[in-house]
Nucleic acid binder design. Sequence first.
DNA 1: TTGAGAGTAGACAGACCTGTCTGTTACTGT
DNA 2: ACAGTAACAGACAGGTCTGTCTACTCTCAA
Lengths: 189, 189
Amino acid sequence: MSQATLDSPRTARQRLVMAADQLFYAEGINSVGIDRVIEHAGVAKATLYSAFGSKDGLIRAYLMRRHDLRTERIMRHVNAHSDPREKVLAVFDSLAELFATPGWRGCPFLASPGETRSGDPVDEITTLTRAWTRALFTELAAAIGMADQPAVADALMNVYDGAIVASQLDHKADAAQTARRLAAMVIAA
Amino acid sequence: MSQATLDSPRTARQRLVMAADQLFYAEGINSVGIDRVIEHAGVAKATLYSAFGSKDGLIRAYLMRRHDLRTERIMRHVNAHSDPREKVLAVFDSLAELFATPGWRGCPFLASPGETRSGDPVDEITTLTRAWTRALFTELAAAIGMADQPAVADALMNVYDGAIVASQLDHKADAAQTARRLAAMVIAA
DNA sequence: TTGAGAGTAGACAGACCTGTCTGTTACTGT
DNA sequence: ACAGTAACAGACAGGTCTGTCTACTCTCAA
């Protein structure tokens, strides 16, 4: 349990989630088969099924990891400020960082539901991560002292999501800056 | 060639595109097989391949039809006004109509690229329909007489896209109204 | 009347999919 | 030393996928 290689994950479970992340994110969860995931992870098929139970279980683990990375990234930017208005703008700074990530191809919580019929297990995690974001914006609106906090959260969500789409579909590098300016208008009003 | 049934499309080609639209949109282009499409259309498999050449050809026809319906819907709202500021807001009225459509499940041009690897034929049509929207916003910004038209178009695109995401993922019925208010702020500034 | 065009039904090939199962190897704690 | 655990490789079943092909039917115009 002491020392191990730091560059590649130790456990088969970790390697599987990493491999699933790379392939599912790049090509879509339906376009990538189990065989390619286990080959990429260097893991036996039985290991996958003992660890996750099914492909759906692996997909859930992939999305949950994305959710965790997302909340960490956003909170890192938000916690760098004390003024609540600057905390709001910091959320859009985290977007700029995200868009500059190598291999960035859009939000998986936006793409995956389009691949599946409504009611699929992936919907739960999408709901989870969106509720988290909305709660953050609502809290920050309260900290600023704005009157209609749900309406402010709606507007900030709108601006946030629009930036992701512009970055994904139009490959606009400055989408986060556009959104940041819009957010500044929202919290100034 | 004169009279025919009006409720169901006449040609096999039309029936195929209609069936593809319903199934692809509801469940994703990768989750729906050819067999289900031809069964739903009441058409033989050879007819599909003689008309479209491949599944990709059918997907393109499905997306092109969605693009045509989209431009018609938007222009119908825009042309109902003469003031360019009201024309901009009318684009968001068309969104409200869209969100109230039975079976609305999000924008196919947003979902399909997430299902395919980059460079797929669907990307062309996504690019087409987004360029059309951007051109519309740029023209309207010019008609209003705004200084930095590309920046205004960026902001309006951001607001427009965000409304679609909120409607799709959060099932927010008033997403179009939120976006309309934001758009009003953008063109007032 | 005859021949072309469009459509139908359905078998088929070959590839790929998820998930199960068998048998083997290697490490680890008692 | 030995049992337990986790991992390995890979065959296999049963199903689905796209795309091709054969053979038949219908309509319509020359």
